[in-house]
Amino acid sequence: MKDILLRIIIGGVAVSAFAMLGELLKPKSFAGLFGAAPSVSLATMVLTVMKEGKTYASIEARSMVLGAVAFIIYAAIISRLMIRRRMQVLSATTLGIGIWVACAFGLWYGFLR
């Protein structure tokens, strides 16, 4: 429980900090880079190394490569849906989460399982 609370606090601070940084910068396409900031991984990596060791963290990072590929597919698809198909932002980003999950687990099944 203590570990989860610690993760919530550290993760919340890291994600909020990168989001704020993104809001401070212009143009928007540049600020968008911070939407892909490694906030969650920075927040958890130190905790993971302290608790589980470096090998464990390294295995997590290997899976993160696939998660990041899924992230690119997710962002490319929702950006296109909003521009070309004129889909609502909330609908596109929510639908996109399903796309990310499908891609991430599909890649994991294909390459790491």
């Binding site: 939407g35 906030s39 899976s63």
Partner: peptide, 19 residues
């Protein structure tokens, strides 16, 4: 860690920021 690692690249900020 193989499954947990996938979530380290979860698009956490995008939905809220885009909206």
């Amino acid at each position: 860690p193989e499954i947990g690692g996938l979530f380290l690249a979860f698009p956490a900020i995008i939905p809220a920021t885009a909206t």
